[in-house]
């Protein structure tokens, strides 16, 4: 085991662990945010730059600080490394910069976006964004397209995390969508009119950190905070059948995988509990599910009332 200090907390981890995962082992608010890294999807990370941290000392052997901020999701810890996340003004400033970049072309259509309330970009925008935009240019726009008959793609909202590409590569037999073009014009698309037809394609919706990929069986049906989540299971020959059903009264409005506080699908019995499209899109009849009990949701979101109120009260910037 090796020792790393993150925001003055000493953590022991296995060699090869990344800074982000070391922080997650410790938990709490020293954990950097991550929009593109997804621990259950190997090869993701490094792209969004929201997890940038300052390395104040590289290791015991070479205690020099690293000159640039590093992506904590893809930088392995060294013995004796000292990392600053929330204790670093530099991190705060630059992460704010990254959030601003992610928002310059974002439509800010939260009021009509199904992801609102559980959107990582919304959280980041609240924590780091400023109230006014400095972007005077015309925003980049794409028309929404269908990716298969159950998934809608709003490219306007996409932050190009590549997670859905990893899902297609790692969970489905063949990939028909990908990242096309480049730079500002890069987009997720199928290029030709093509449906993503695969039993596990719906997981793209669960891994999407924003509202770019949404469930067409749930679109515009309800705000997520009006629904009650229940842990549920069903007998399924395709997947574990362990899911969360989101209910209003006796009606199931949507089905998702069970996600942890980092928004990642949970590991159940040593397996990542991805769910199949049948369970996600087609089993809306409560009699098909065995409801285990209320699902505790980590109400990290800005829309969660408690947080919004306290944050607001304590934030002089917002009040002025």
């Amino acid at each position: 085991m090796i020792k790393v200090t993150i925001d003055d907390v000493e953590i022991e981890v296995a060699p090869g662990t990344t800074i982000l995962n070391a922080a997650r082992q410790a938990g709490g608010d020293l954990v950097p945010p991550a929009m593109c890294y997804y621990s259950k999807l190997p090869g993701t990370g490094g792209k969004c730059r929201t997890c940038l941290v300052e390395v104040a000392a590289g290791s015991t052997a070479d205690p020099r600080p690293m000159p640039k901020l590093v992506a904590s999701c893809s930088t392995p810890v060294m013995d004796g490394m000292i990392v600053k996340n929330k204790t670093s003004e530099r991190v705060h400033t630059n992460r704010g910069g990254v959030v601003e970049f992610l928002l310059v072309n974002h439509p800010l259509d939260c009021p009509i976006c199904d992801q609102a309330g559980e959107c990582h970009l919304q959280d980041l925008g609240y924590e780091h964004g400023s109230a006014k935009t400095r972007y005077r240019e015309e925003r980049r726009t794409f028309s929404p397209i269908d990716i298969g008959n159950k998934i809608k793609l709003h490219m306007n909202r996409c932050i190009l995390c590549y997670r859905c590409v990893a899902v297609a590569n790692q969970l489905t037999e063949k990939r028909v969508h990908g990242v096309l073009h480049r730079g500002e014009h890069a987009e997720i698309s199928t290029y030709i009119e093509n449906a993503i037809d695969n039993d596990f394609s719906g997981n793209m919706i669960d891994v999407c950190p924003v509202g770019a990929l949404t469930d067409k069986t749930f679109r515009f049906k309800s705000r997520v905070w009006f629904l009650k989540p229940y842990e549920a299971e069903c007998a399924c020959d395709k997947c574990s059948g362990k899911a969360v059903v989101w209910m209003f009264g006796n009606e199931i409005f949507r089905v998702t995988a069970r996600k942890d506080k980092y928004g990642e699908v949970e590991t159940i019995e040593d397996k990542t509990a991805w769910i199949c499209n049948d369970c996600r899109f087609d089993k809306k009849d409560p009699s098909k599910w065995n409801l285990i009990g209320p699902r505790k949701i980590d109400r990290h979101s800005v829309i969660s009332q408690g947080k919004y109120a306290t944050k607001n009260d304590n934030n002089p910037k917002l009040l002025s």
Partner: peptide, 22 residues
């Protein structure tokens, strides 16, 4: 540079395009 950005990471993808427009 905006034309040649690969578009993979956000500061470069959005920042180069923004600078070009300004």
């Amino acid at each position: 540079y905006a034309h040649e950005s690969c578009g993979q990471c956000s500061p470069c993808r959005e920042g180069t395009g923004w600078m070009e427009k300004v």
